[in-house]
Design a protein around this nucleic acid. Structure first.
Lengths: 243, 243
DNA sequence: TCCTAATATTCTTATATAAGAGTTATATGA
DNA sequence: TCATATAACTCTTATATAAGAATATTAGGA
């Protein structure tokens, strides 16, 4: 009963089904929060067995792209504040309880032409414009993080200084601009606090800061956010679990 | 055809099969590198279907506990140098190519009574003895990491200063002492270089260092190694991929 | 004794069916 | 109109069988 495929491809059938589902997500046919047709319905559409669709679904769940609910259905994963923090925020307090950043204070917001480095990192044209947000995030009422965020202007057209900018930006990108962050790569370094950072974080110039240099990508592999966070780790730590 | 279980338990059959397999690993019945009975053989032994064993195997593969080879069989995962570095060593060079630490120079090696903090971290008796290794690890011929490693003496009895201590300790623990590291939890901080560290790492006292505070566990959840590494991140970074 | 072909083993992919468990929708009666 | 019971939908678990692909073993011939 091997199927005729919508897009001829190679590899096992379950991988082709997987690719087709991802393609519909990338094309915006299925959007975050939307419920998918049932396994049986898709099996019929793709002319494969229900078990084959099951295997494709399982793989996509594992990649945080789908969420399954027994009795309800299968949904395109959407960012919620809680889920965003769990996946993309690894700073924890010493006592092991992770309070989400409670507040963030905007330092600056500007739209401008990108720099050469921003062009390179975000793979945009040298003449493209970006939105540049700088903010301080506090935990337990103390400033802990100062971060610089750069996003191509074309992706979040309309976001202005007047908008309330939430702590959890990925939910905002997704809900208001249809940009869904799927994965991020972070490089961590120990750096010395600059005078400006010292001022914002109530630290002594030269004190050690943990720098998190992050590139965030959408599902099709496009880098859409470059974020550099500098964190005071005297009362917090960056948690990494290795398996 | 639901089975009678070797150890009565709750939950789905595949989870019980999984638990049984893990128990045999913890008990040392199956050891790293060993090939397991086939899916069909275990299905017969546990009186479940081959698909149920398949599902348990798949979960264990996902947890890095088993390795499958088409046509050859299923094996208890074993540490190799390469695999150990990939899982438990996230320091990468700026150019993105990860050279493994080429050399490590032993600074000190001692067997002694544990400190209160070591007792707490490693969950051992206050009167227990530990092996304490301090070493400098170099990458591209430059010292990059100074680390302090503490392991309960009872687990690696016989390891002495005279032994050649390899870069990849987990392979040594596993092959020579039957101690298999399954998972590690790391907390990262930015710290200032002490005078002693500065000397070993060719840095200026006070320069920022990335501190990796790691607790490593065996399969049954026992902490067996406390390792604190302080890394010079001027030419390297700690890589973290978030999904 | 060595090489090659055949056979056996085992994982991987794929199909099919069915019951359990959770959720949602619909119908019926008050 | 609202509440409750029933039916339908959908995921989850479990069974079964078979062919494809990769690897290992064995047998036979040179």
């Amino acid at each position: 009963m091997h199927s005729v495929r919508a897009t001829p491809g190679e590899g096992p059938l379950f991988a082709q089904v997987q690719a087709l589902i991802i393609q519909r997500m990338v094309d915006g046919i299925w959007t975050p929060g939307e419920r998918l047709p049932s396994e049986f319905a898709l099996a019929e559409e793709f002319n494969v067995s229900q078990g084959t669709v099951r295997k494709a679904f399982d793989a996509l769940v594992h990649e945080n792209l789908l969420i399954r609910h027994q009795g309800r259905g299968t949904f395109i994963a959407a960012h919620s504040a809680k889920r965003e923090l769990y996946r993309f925020f690894h700073l924890v307090s010493k006592d092991g309880v992770t309070p989400p950043p409670q507040t963030s204070r905007l330092i600056s917001f500007e739209r401008r032409k990108c720099s050469a480095e921003e062009s390179r990192r975000l793979k945009i044209s040298k003449s493209a414009h970006v939105v540049n947000i700088q903010r301080v995030r506090s935990m337990n009422k103390a400033p802990v993080i100062i971060e610089n965020i750069v996003v191509p202007d074309a992706l979040i057209t309309g976001l202005g200084e007047d908008n309330e900018i939430p702590n959890e930006l990925y939910q905002l990108y997704e809900q208001s601009y249809g940009v869904t962050i799927h994965k991020a790569i972070e490089h961590l370094h120990a750096r010395a606090t600059t005078r400006s950072e010292a001022c914002h974080l109530s630290l002594i110039e030269g004190a050690p800061l943990l720098e998190i240099d992050r590139l965030a990508f959408t599902l099709d592999g496009t880098p859409v956010e470059w974020r550099v966070s500098r964190c005071d780790t005297s009362a917090h730590s960056y948690l990494s679990e290795l398996f």
